[in-house]
Computed example of a mutant assay.
Amino acid sequence: MMVGEKIKSLRIRKKYSITELSEKAKVSKSYLSYIERGIQKNPSLQVLSRLAKTLDTTVEYLMGHEIKVNKNGIPIDQEWLLLVDEAIKNGISKEDFSFYLDFVKFKNNINHDK
């Protein structure tokens, strides 16, 4: 899948019109249309970065590096998968993992309130 096809697919998945995405990512509508239709095959890194951020993905994914995506089309970071795999191999239970997540959320809320 080419860059433009990936952008269009993610845009449709997020239910953005081409106008909405262009406004949110601060990319001209015509330029975005050229990218999606494959007329502009090499958009700048700056444009790709803004589009990736707006579409909750990565430039790497848009550029065609094979990255696993979850059911919402959001890329899954391989480093995180390796960390979770390692935790499982070392015996962490779902309950323990859930506890740590709750602890981090609690800690972040305390730090946010300061």
Results as ranks from 00 to 15, higher is better:
I74F: 03
S98R: 10
L55K: 04
P43Y: 04
N111C: 05
T58I: 06
S9Q: 14
L62Y: 10
E95G: 03
K71W: 01
I88G: 01
A87F: 11
A25W: 03
S44R: 12
I18E: 09
K24E: 11
S49Q: 14
E86C: 06
I88K: 15
A52T: 02
R37H: 12
V47P: 00
Y31T: 07
L62A: 09
V47Q: 00
K24W: 06
V69E: 13
K8R: 15
L82Q: 06
G73C: 12
L51C: 01
D85C: 03
V59W: 11
F106S: 08
E95K: 15
D85Y: 09
K41C: 04
G73R: 12
F99Y: 15
Q40M: 04
K26N: 10
S44Y: 07
H65M: 14
A25M: 01
S44V: 07
D102H: 05
G73K: 12
T58W: 05
K6F: 04
K29N: 08
L10S: 04
L32H: 03
D96H: 12
T57W: 02
S49F: 05
V69T: 15
I35Q: 03
I35P: 03
L45I: 12
S33H: 13
I7G: 07
M63S: 14
T58K: 06
L62C: 10
F103A: 10
K41Q: 14
V69F: 07
A25R: 02
Y31W: 02
S98H: 06
R13Y: 02
Y61F: 15
W80M: 14
N111G: 04
S22Y: 00
K107W: 10
K6I: 07
D77K: 07
N72F: 10
R11W: 08
E79L: 05
F99L: 12
S17Y: 10
I92S: 12
T58M: 05
V3Y: 06
S9C: 06
A25S: 15
K6C: 05
K41P: 05
D113S: 15
A25L: 02
D102G: 08
I12L: 15
I39F: 04
N108G: 03
K107P: 00
R50S: 12
N90G: 04
K105P: 01
V59E: 13
F106C: 02
S9Y: 11
H65L: 14
V27R: 01
I67R: 14
R11H: 08
S44L: 09
I110Y: 13
S17A: 09
V3A: 07
I74T: 14
R37C: 09
S22Q: 02
T19I: 07
I35A: 03
S17C: 09
K94S: 12
K15E: 12
E95V: 12
D113W: 11
E23R: 13
V3C: 13
A87P: 01
A52P: 05
K14C: 03
I35L: 06
L101V: 14
S17E: 08
